[in-house]
Design a protein around this nucleic acid. Structure first.
Lengths: 210, 210
DNA sequence: CCGGAGGGTGAGCAAGCGCTTAGGCGTGCT
DNA sequence: AGCACGCCTAAGCGCTTGCTCACCCTCCGG
């Protein structure tokens, strides 16, 4: 089984561990929940603070603005997403295995942490110009990681992909959009969705059957 | 060539023609632009009115609330999307041809009208409960249309799809997400993206090569 | 020539927003 | 003991928000 969720996270595993002090982390987790539920603009600082069990003013001890809170969430989430993708891209095995591993773990993350992922992937436009630019650069790296696997697979003759940049876009788009629909529909586990999507993507790139 | 866009629409073709009177339509078009650019919650009624060249109060002559404006947009957009899908699903030809036609036209619409599509697909949660329920029902019909094509293709032996509901979800997700990234990236035409995606989807369902 | 209806405006209200300020309370170093 | 420091709160400021209200055009049938 894969555990109930009070806010989102299963049992022992603790993300956001890089955020200190404790009160700052509680505020950040509260903000993730609120942003995911209502969207950035519809969320008030009072709502975030009260979810964290604090007064509205407490937020400004740890963060300068509401936007900085979103930026911190977005930054940490994109770092994690990029780490997942490039770990798989630089892993062992042929292009097909690496692509399947990348999609599997990327999708699994988006499904298991769909609350976080929703904020990370769909609230970009609420960031200020400089913060947005920083995040967009990270996303280009994610794109490059996937494109590299596709290009290598094509060169090795493992894949049949007429349009590498376009297919890269489609693969990432497919994975990212999991955050939008997951758990609003059926009762698939993140692992099942990851498995399904890995298979679908291998078909998209025309991977040779082993 | 496919024409510059002042707000969004190419030359002669006029959507929103079902919206009358004229001032109501201008307000609605202004709202689509504003919602797509900044999101529903970040858009003010003053912004919508001034884009339509009117005073803030004019909005309330034609719509009771800001939410009603979003609902009208969402309703018209979903009607159109469903019409596109079910026309293709009920069209002539085998499952593969109908699936390709559905994806091609559905994606083309999302790309060409990505401004509208963005609002229609990504601002659902800003709707009130009853309005949201109405829209969700329409989306289930879209899902059913695609699922029907897949099921028929599998039965006829044209497709190889282990998980029909899951693959249906993935296909729709892939198409819808076009509205998010289109035109923020490269200079592909809606037709090119539609063609690419139709091919990718045929691969996803393991369609027999003709 | 009039009167009323539909479409529009300027001013503004009550509420809620992001954020600040002045101050309090506990804890650990000197 | 004294006190600086980190963390937190109550109160509230200035502004913007969705929306309303009293009033004014312009057109058109009788």
């Amino acid at each position: 089984m894969h555990s109930a969720e009070e806010t989102e996270e299963p049992g022992g595993y603790q993300p956001w561990s890089e955020v200190t002090p404790d009160a700052a982390r509680r505020l950040l987790v509260a903000a993730v929940d609120a942003f995911a539920e209502r969207g950035y603009h519809a969320t008030t600082t009072r709502d975030i603070a009260s979810r964290a069990g604090m007064s509205p003013a407490a937020l400004y001890i740890h963060y300068r603005t509401k936007e900085e809170l979103l930026h911190r969430i977005s930054r940490i989430g994109h770092d994690k997403a990029l780490e997942i993708l490039s770990t798989a891209a630089d892993g062992p095995g042929g292009a097909a295995e690496r692509l399947a591993a990348a999609v599997r773990s990327f999708v699994r993350w988006h499904a298991a942490h769909h609350t976080t992922a929703r904020v990370v992937q769909y609230e970009l436009e609420a960031l200020g110009p400089e913060h947005r630019a920083e995040i967009v650069a990270l996303r280009r790296e994610s794109d490059a990681a996937v494109r590299r696997i596709l290009a290598e697979g094509v060169e090795a003759g493992d894949f049949d992909v007429p349009d590498v940049p376009g297919t890269t876009l489609a693969v990432l788009s497919l994975c990212i959009d999991v955050a939008r629909w997951f758990n609003t529909a059926g009762r698939r586990s993140p692992e099942e969705v990851g498995e399904l999507y890995a298979d679908l993507v291998l078909r998209m790139v025309g991977a040779r059957q082993k």
